[in-house]
Design a protein around this nucleic acid. Structure first.
Ligand SMILES: [Zn+2]
Ligand SMILES: [Zn+2]
Ligand SMILES: [Zn+2]
Ligand SMILES: [Zn+2]
Lengths: 147, 147
DNA sequence: CCTAATGTCTCTAGTACCTATAGCTTCAAG
DNA sequence: CTTGAAGCTATAGGTACTAGAGACATTAGG
């Protein structure tokens, strides 16, 4: 049996985070010692490691909640689990695509700046006018205004 | 002079967001009409467009606050602005690197799953054990536990 | 001019995922 | 037995908004 601190070290999760996971029902309420301290068994440690690993892979807590409840019913089809993972993959891909566009735009504006005054800083200039951007990121509506 | 709704449409920002920006001091308190409604001039519109564009490029509001105050002093050197943009670029690059590692890992676990039961689902299996991951994402501390 | 629809006002609370603080009790080592 | 680390509860904060309630303002049609 581990105290919360040892469990945190074992799983690589901070102590307040463990208590938070318990609070939101992601971890079951553990046994308590005579002095009211939480005591965790190996099962809890596995569960927390699972959560931690899924968080590392960017899964949101709600998805993790679903994955955990799936892993409690081993005989069931894994289609749902695979859908959750596939959705997460799509989300990651979308974020990469967006960030890559931002990266290009930032690089462009930074390299174009001649390091003079604010008055002719390319960074400020581009931020003031999306028309100066190359294709890139989606400014969803008008950013340009009358001159 | 624009009402808050027209300003929102013109700049591509939702009305509550405009009020929020005012509340946190990113937009100055505007004039009011006889009926107490906010009225914005072209300057406010430019300022909001600037904020919107910087947000689109992922700058945090605090950085935008700094950029805005810089753009109010045009004779100053733009070094600070360029530093802010460069930091933002680094942040974006770091996030891309991380997400790319996640993408690889997610793809691996998804393609390896044979679509059977949860008991032998590769997704669940990999989430349960970081050792099954290939190099990829940083599990900062132990996720593996005694068998 | 009256009415209905839309727009705007303030204020509060909620989202995701923790992190930090305060003030207390318990435990383990010396 | 003492001391310092670790644990407990409860609350508040951070980021960047978003949603909702209930009241007032404006505008277009009839
Ligand atoms: Zn510059
Ligand atoms: Zn742009
Ligand atoms: Zn599967
Ligand atoms: Zn892993």
């Amino acid at each position: 049996m581990l105290t919360i601190g040892k469990l945190g070290i074992a799983a690589g999760v901070k102590v307040p985070t463990i208590r938070y996971y318990e609070q939101i029902g992601l971890l079951p309420t553990p046994e308590r010692s005579a002095g009211n301290q939480r005591l965790y068994d190996a099962k809890a440690q596995h569960r927390l490691a699972f959560i931690r690993h899924a968080r590392d892979l960017g899964f949101p807590l709600e998805a993790i909640r679903d994955l955990l409840s799936l892993s409690d019913t081993p005989e069931q089809s894994c289609a749902v689990a695979d859908v959750i993972a596939t959705e997460q993959l799509s989300a990651v891909k979308a974020r990469i695509a967006r960030l890559t566009a931002l990266q290009a735009e930032l690089e462009r504006m930074i390299t174009q700046c001649a390091q003079g005054t604010i008055a002719d800083c390319r960074v400020i200039e581009v931020l003031s006018d999306h028309e100066l951007c190359g294709e890139g990121h989606g400014a969803r509506t008008a950013t340009r205004c009358a001159p």
